Computed example of a mutant assay.
Amino acid sequence: MDEETRHPTGPDTEHPVCARCGVTAAGDTPPATWACSVEDGRRQYFCEDCARTGIRAIESRLDSDRW
């Protein structure tokens, strides 16, 4: 639990990179509008556009009374 959080970075940058489309965040931390997921023990970030696309795909599979 005392381990330092490591953020995914691009090949030549210290900035977080979207795991789906590869866009790089402007700062050294992902913007609040980005989504974060831990998959197979790895933290991945998704830019706002990719996060919205994923959320819409999930919502489209739900019955309308669920959302």
Score class of each variant (00 low, 15 high):
residue 1 M to V: 12
residue 3 E to M: 07
residue 3 E to G: 01
residue 4 E to M: 12
residue 4 E to A: 07
residue 4 E to N: 02
residue 5 T to A: 07
residue 5 T to D: 02
residue 6 R to Y: 12
residue 6 R to I: 15
residue 7 H to I: 08
residue 7 H to T: 08
residue 7 H to S: 02
residue 7 H to Q: 04
residue 8 P to R: 13
residue 8 P to E: 03
residue 8 P to C: 11
residue 9 T to F: 01
residue 9 T to K: 13
residue 10 G to M: 04
residue 10 G to F: 06
residue 11 P to A: 07
residue 11 P to F: 03
residue 12 D to L: 10
residue 12 D to N: 08
residue 12 D to T: 12
residue 12 D to V: 07
residue 13 T to A: 10
residue 13 T to S: 15
residue 13 T to F: 02
residue 14 E to W: 06
residue 14 E to V: 13
residue 14 E to Y: 08
residue 15 H to G: 06
residue 15 H to F: 00
residue 15 H to V: 02
residue 16 P to D: 06
residue 17 V to F: 02
residue 19 A to F: 07
residue 21 C to R: 09
residue 21 C to D: 10
residue 22 G to F: 03
residue 22 G to T: 03
residue 23 V to E: 05
residue 23 V to C: 11
residue 23 V to G: 02
residue 24 T to N: 08
residue 25 A to E: 00
residue 26 A to T: 13
residue 27 G to F: 08
residue 27 G to W: 02
residue 27 G to L: 14
residue 28 D to N: 11
residue 28 D to L: 11
residue 29 T to E: 09
residue 30 P to W: 04
residue 30 P to R: 05
residue 32 A to Q: 08
residue 33 T to N: 07
residue 34 W to M: 06
residue 34 W to Q: 04
residue 35 A to R: 12
residue 35 A to Y: 09
residue 35 A to K: 13
residue 35 A to T: 04
residue 36 C to I: 06
residue 36 C to D: 01
residue 36 C to T: 12
residue 36 C to V: 05
residue 37 S to K: 10
residue 38 V to E: 12
residue 38 V to W: 00
residue 38 V to Q: 14
residue 39 E to T: 11
residue 39 E to H: 04
residue 40 D to Y: 06
residue 40 D to Q: 15
residue 41 G to K: 04
residue 42 R to Q: 09
residue 42 R to M: 07
residue 42 R to P: 00
residue 43 R to W: 04
residue 43 R to C: 09
residue 44 Q to H: 13
residue 44 Q to P: 00
residue 44 Q to N: 14
residue 45 Y to W: 10
residue 46 F to K: 05
residue 46 F to A: 09
residue 46 F to Y: 15
residue 47 C to V: 06
residue 47 C to D: 04
residue 47 C to P: 11
residue 48 E to K: 11
residue 49 D to P: 06
residue 50 C to E: 01
residue 50 C to F: 06
residue 51 A to R: 13
residue 51 A to K: 15
residue 51 A to Q: 08
residue 52 R to M: 05
residue 52 R to H: 00
residue 53 T to L: 03
residue 53 T to N: 01
residue 53 T to F: 01
residue 54 G to F: 05
residue 54 G to T: 05
residue 54 G to D: 12
residue 54 G to P: 01
residue 56 R to M: 04
residue 57 A to E: 10
residue 58 I to W: 09
residue 58 I to S: 02
residue 59 E to G: 03
residue 59 E to R: 15
residue 60 S to N: 13
residue 61 R to N: 05
residue 61 R to H: 10
residue 61 R to Q: 13
residue 62 L to T: 12
residue 62 L to Q: 11
residue 64 S to R: 08
residue 64 S to D: 14
residue 65 D to K: 10
residue 65 D to A: 08
residue 66 R to N: 05
residue 66 R to V: 10
residue 66 R to L: 11
residue 67 W to E: 06
residue 67 W to I: 12
